Simulated assay, not measured.
Amino acid sequence: MAAAFSFSYDQAFSRNIGWVTPAEQAQLKGKRVAIAGVGGVGGVYLLTLARLGITQFHIADFDSFDIANLNRQAAAFMSTMGLPKADVAARMARDINPEMQVKVFGKGVDASNMAEFLDGVDIYVDGLDFFAFAARQQIFAMCATRGIPATTVAPLGMGAACLNFLPGGMTFEEYFGWGDRPELEKALRFLVGLAPAGLHRRYLVWPEAVNLQERRGPSTIMACQLCAGVAGTQTLKILLGRGEVITAPRGFQYDAYRDKLVHTWRPGGYRNPLTQLALAIGKRVFAKALLKQ
Results as ranks from 00 to 15, higher is better:
Gln213Lys: 14
Leu194Val: 06
Leu261Asp: 07
Gly39Gln: 03
Trp265Asn: 15
Val262Ala: 12
Lys85Pro: 12
Ala195His: 03
Phe286Trp: 09
Asp255Cys: 01
Leu166Val: 10
Leu184Met: 11
Val153Ile: 13
Pro84Asp: 03
Asn71Thr: 06
Ser219Lys: 01
Gly37Cys: 05
Leu46Cys: 04
Ala75Lys: 00
Pro182Asn: 08
Ala280Asp: 14
Ile59Asp: 08
Val245His: 09
Ile139Pro: 15
Pro155Arg: 00
Ala68Gln: 14
Leu188Pro: 00
Ala278Val: 00
Gly37Asp: 07
Val20Met: 01
Ala26Leu: 07
Gly169Lys: 13
Gly147Trp: 10
Thr55Asn: 02
Arg15Glu: 02
Phe172Thr: 10
Thr55Asp: 00
Met114Ile: 15
Asp87His: 07
Asp110Ser: 15
Ile67Glu: 07
Asp119His: 13
Gly120Lys: 13
Lys85Thr: 08
Val121Asn: 04
Gly169Ile: 13
Tyr257Trp: 12
Tyr9Lys: 06
Met142Lys: 12
Asn97His: 07
Ala154Lys: 03
Asn71Asp: 10
Val33Thr: 09
Lys29Gln: 15
Gly268Tyr: 15
Ala74Asp: 00
Val104Asp: 05
Lys31Arg: 13
Leu239Ser: 09
Pro207Phe: 01
Ala23Asn: 04
Arg189Gln: 05
Ala90Glu: 03
Thr275Ala: 15
Leu291Trp: 11
Gly106Ile: 04
Phe117Asp: 11
Phe7Cys: 10
Gly120Phe: 01
Ile281Pro: 06
Ala60Asn: 04
Asp110Glu: 12
Val230Trp: 03
Pro182Asp: 12
Gly269Val: 14
Ser14Leu: 05
Ala12Leu: 09
Gln27Phe: 01
Arg271Thr: 15
Val210His: 04
Glu173His: 12
Val285His: 04
Leu83Pro: 00
Leu184Ser: 05
Asn16Lys: 02
Glu214Val: 02
Trp19Met: 12
Gln276Tyr: 09
Ala248Leu: 10
Leu226Asn: 08
Phe252Val: 10
Asp119Gln: 15
Gly127His: 06
Arg215Tyr: 03
Val153Gly: 02
Thr264Val: 15
Ala256Tyr: 05
Met158Thr: 08
Phe252His: 13
Met92His: 13
Ala134Gly: 02
Gly243Ile: 04
Leu191Trp: 06
Ala248Asp: 12
Leu212Met: 13
Lys186Cys: 14
Val121Tyr: 04
Cys227His: 06
Pro98Asp: 13
Asn97Ile: 06
Pro218Cys: 05
Gly217Asp: 02
Gln11Glu: 13
Ala76Tyr: 00
Phe176Met: 03
Arg136Ala: 15
Ala256Met: 12
Val102Arg: 10
Gln56Asn: 09
Lys31Trp: 00
Met142Gly: 01
Asp66Gly: 11
Gln137Leu: 11
Tyr203Ile: 09
Thr247Ala: 15
Ile96Ser: 09
Phe176Ala: 02
Asp63Leu: 03
Leu239Cys: 08
Val38Ala: 04
Gln56Tyr: 01
Ala93Gln: 08
His58Phe: 08
Ile17Lys: 05
Gln25Pro: 05
Ser64Ala: 10
Phe7Tyr: 14
Gln101Tyr: 00
Arg146Trp: 04
Lys237Cys: 10
Leu83Tyr: 03
Gln213Glu: 14
Val192Tyr: 02
Ala75Pro: 00
Ala280Arg: 13
His263Asn: 14
Glu185Val: 03
Ala76Glu: 00
Ala34Leu: 08
Ala90Thr: 02
Phe176Thr: 01
Gly53Asp: 12
